[in-house]
Amino acid sequence: MSPENYLYLSALLFTIGACGVLIRRNAIVVFMCIELMLNAANLALVAFSRMHGNLDGQIAAFFVMVVAAAEVVVGLAIIVMLYRSRHSASVDDASLMKL
């Protein structure tokens, strides 16, 4: 098996996540899809790291994880705020800048 298959898997997962972002309305699910895309990217980075025989790819994946953690913290806080103000977690309900 060629390790390229990891890349194909990564692309597939990334596309699935992207479609999820476009299709789902629940903000939390959208967020999860984004996490899926990030993970797919991480998989590609790890595979690249192996292909090139150095650890820079893993370092990049590591940073992606850290930043994703930070993003999750802020993003979930925003979702909580949204729910508090609109009593709904739907991203479509937040289509106006004012309440």
Partner: peptide
């Protein structure tokens, strides 16, 4: 510019 984040996401993708 309909305000729907998902529409914007479509254009982004």
């Amino acid at each position: 510019q309909n305000g729907f984040a998902r529409s914007y996401a479509v254009s982004m993708f």
